[in-house]
């Protein structure tokens, strides 16, 4: 039996942890903890990027890792925590589907994701196969979270977690996108979060709450 090099074993372990974190996000209703989980996801992503960078020796991956660390581990969680304090949103309401139900759907989604990733995984090098399936699973699980949550803040965490899944997918399939593109994406995420901060204050000013049930008056045909 072939032994897998240590660094790849680590990347695979990180992938598994990433999936685990996605599930804990699904079950977490405390928004502060959600943001902490998101920061941990960012940290895993950073370590995975640096591992791949070390293995391939590509300098732009080191930069990308540092960028991920600065943006996803330090800046965004800080921004979100600040928003939570200023807006005083600590708990999400009961999700549309109760938590055990969501977890069951999540398991089905993981199975589906591995099926979906099959054609890509077959082309990828043997060792990163599992990571691709996991990346797709993380994307879809974040999607599920966005659908089932009603607080704007949890939806945003879901959105960022989806972005993390995408980055992990890019890392495990192609060893990262070209530098120009990665910089652009990072810039977009940063601006998106700033826009969002402004936006939250506008919503609260108007409705006195960040519950998205207030945002349901525009219906088809009105």
């Amino acid at each position: 039996m072939n032994t897998i090099p240590l660094d790849l074993q680590i990347v695979n372990a990180l992938a598994a942890l990433l999936l685990l974190l996605s599930f804990s996000m699904l079950s977490q209703r405390r928004i502060v903890s959600l943001v902490n989980l998101l920061a941990m996801q960012g940290l895993l992503l950073t370590v995975a990027t640096l591992m791949v960078a070390w293995r391939t020796g590509e300098t732009h991956l080191y930069l990308s890792g540092l960028l991920t660390f600065a943006l996803k581990v330090l800046f965004l969680p800080w921004l979100l925590h600040r928003l939570i304090r200023r807006l005083e949103v600590y708990w999400d309401t009961e999700p549309l589907l109760n938590i055990p139900g969501t977890m069951l759907v999540g398991v089905l989604i993981v199975v589906f994701a591995f099926g979906l990733a099959q054609p890509i995984a077959e082309l990828a090098s043997e060792t990163t196969r599992n990571s691709i399936g996991i990346a797709v699973a993380v994307i879809l699980l974040s999607f599920l979270m966005m659908i089932t949550r009603s607080k704007a803040m949890s939806q945003v965490v879901g959105f960022l977690s989806m972005e993390n899944g995408l980055f992990f997918g890019a890392m495990s399939t192609t060893r990262g996108m070209p530098m120009v593109v990665e910089l652009g994406i990072a810039l977009d995420i940063l601006v998106a979060m700033l826009v969002l901060g402004v936006f939250f204050f506008q919503i609260r000013e108007q409705f006195d709450s960040l519950d998205l049930h207030h945002l349901e008056s525009l219906k088809e045909g009105d």
């Binding site: 998106a192 969002l196 506008q202 919503i203």
Partner: peptide, 15 residues
């Protein structure tokens, strides 16, 4: 315009 309807539209657009 910061009206409730505009905020809703903006949120939908964003997400």
């Amino acid at each position: 315009y910061r009206t409730p309807a505009a905020l809703e539209a903006g949120w939908k657009y964003f997400i």
